[in-house]
Design a protein around this nucleic acid. Structure first.
Lengths: 210, 210
DNA sequence: CCCGGGATCAACCCTTTGGTTGATGGCGGC
DNA sequence: GCCGCCATCAACCAAAGGGTTGATCCCGGG
């Protein structure tokens, strides 16, 4: 056993950062070297300090989100591993995080031992998926599942918030034509014919959280 | 300053419990005497131990939820105060918690000082609302309570299920014109301009449940 | 290297929805 | 008895949404 694993905690909740710090401090081979309360700060810390593993939340209150930060962090040479640690296990979120370059995906209600094990796995370059998350992915593969692309999910979520196509196009810096295209694809995949029906079905299948 | 405030932490996330414990341990007048990983356990602990304030999450994975536990805890004589501590601040959740007997309502992203202050306020019997939460309630009070008529609610619920005006008219044995009239009234009362927005607002205000 | 899928946009057409005006009947309260 | 509210419906117009075709670009896999 050589030097300890150097950790960065990136989460906008002070409670969560303290909790992780407390839980991980009992592990002699793990050291928390920094905390970040915003995604942007997490990227900055990784750029100037030597970090082995980042525990990254996906939701930050505003500004840059966890997925973007993950992509920015792993883009550099000698980048740390990023372990996504979030409350939800929506398929779209998991896929987006993995695509952005996350090494693993954990849920915040995971038992502490699982947490420490995942950090060690990530530090060693191995992938770490929480059992619950792994289950979802397996179900996903087995059920010819409705696989919405990240962009489609994003648009659908804004629809669920009551936005019009025009508002969505402005929010995402797209043309209305593109929004419509995404929605038509969503309707096809969900087997519906209107935006409200799509929202209803997506809610039922857990594709949308509030 | 007499004896310290005795706290119970009720949350299904080990990370959150540890975080709260760590953050509150720096306050000499506050003592965490127990933790509960389920709502049922929280009720049991309150029944057999002397607790002054309960920090209660609303969402537990399964089984009893925070609102029910809150009601059960405050029902007994000499009950501890319950401080709800959750991630979301939807109006429906806040109202439900307050109705169940919660003394205060905090968000998990609140700064640690605010947290400690709220606990002391609760212990002293004072109400504690996070500023963000208070804002919501004020908005709610200022906006006159939207009272949808029974028929309007019925139509809106079918809209939320994804039905078109035509489908609704058949389901309720009405003409489409009548459905439209009801919806226009609903839009006016909710302050929106489309059916999806109406569903979003209604969900937020708890006018619709799944 | 080509192919497929994701993401982007345009132009077109048709249907649905939203907004307005106006009208009828019933029910409850003052 | 009148007024207000709820519920019902019609006709009409403007706007938004839904459906189709087709096109470009980029990327990663075989």
């Amino acid at each position: 056993m050589s030097r300890p694993v150097r950790l960065l905690l990136a989460d906008d909740h002070p409670v969560v950062r303290s909790g992780l710090r407390a839980l991980l401090s009992t592990e002699p081979d793990l050291t928390v070297v920094a905390e970040a309360a915003t995604a942007r700060e997490a990227v900055a810390v990784c750029a100037r300090e030597s970090v082995d593993v980042v525990l990254m939340d996906l939701q930050f209150g505003s500004g840059m989100q966890g997925v973007e930060a993950t992509a920015a962090i792993v883009a550099r040479p000698d980048a740390p591993r990023v372990l996504v640690l979030t409350t939800y296990d929506t398929e779209a979120d998991i896929l987006a995080a993995v695509e952005a370059g996350a090494t693993g995906y954990l849920l915040k209600d995971a038992p502490p031992e699982e947490l420490a094990a995942a950090v060690r796995a990530a530090a060693a370059g191995r992938s770490a998926l929480a059992p619950a998350v792994a289950h979802r992915l397996i179900d996903r593969v087995r059920a010819p599942g409705v696989a919405l692309t990240p962009r489609e999910s994003e648009v659908l979520r804004l629809v669920a918030d009551g936005l019009s196509n025009q508002q969505i196009s402005r929010r995402l810096h797209l043309s209305q034509a593109t929004v419509k295209t995404h929605l038509v694809h969503v309707y096809g995949k969900l087997g519906v014919e209107s935006r409200t029906a799509a929202v209803a079905v997506a809610r039922e299948r857990g594709l949308i959280r509030r």
